[in-house]
């Protein structure tokens, strides 16, 4: 089977993730949608690696996973700090940097 089907699937998943980032207001769910977008890009990288016959795409996906893990740790810690001070996980309530 042609691996390009995976690319279309990854594009659809990426779009769903971006819609979730735009629509949802709970900061943790927004974060999960970002994770979905990162995962779909990983699928694209792995598929490109297969199309080109080299392993470099898989290495890139591996590094994306590591950076995503670090990002999740720091992001969730920030969310917890925001929740502690404002008692809310909604992205609408974190507006101190707005003015």
């Amino acid at each position: 089977m042609s691996p390009t089907a995976y690319l279309y699937l990854a594009a659809i998943l990426f779009s769903i993730g971006s819609v979730g980032v735009l629509v949802r207001r709970n900061a943790i769910v927004v974060f999960m949608c970002v994770e979905l977008m990162l995962n779909s890009v990983n699928l694209t990288l792995v598929t490109f690696s297969r199309i080109n016959g080299t392993l470099d795409g898989q290495i890139y996906a591996f590094f994306v996973m590591v950076v995503a893990a670090a990002e999740v740790v720091v992001g969730l810690a920030i969310l917890m700090t925001v929740y502690r001070t404002r008692r809310s996980a909604s992205v609408d309530d974190a507006n101190l940097l707005k003015y």
């Binding site: 943790i28 990983n42 792995v46 898989q58 591996f62 995503a68 893990a69 969310l79 917890m80 929740y83």
Partner: peptide, 29 residues
């Protein structure tokens, strides 16, 4: 897609570590 190493890393890192971290934070929040 002939990437068994990444498949296992995906299960261990994402499903195992990242999602459980998300659930822990959900329990706290």
């Amino acid at each position: 897609e002939q990437a068994p190493f990444l498949a296992f890393v995906q299960v261990v890192v994402y499903t195992g570590a990242v999602m459980m971290l998300f659930l822990f934070v959900l329990m706290l929040v």
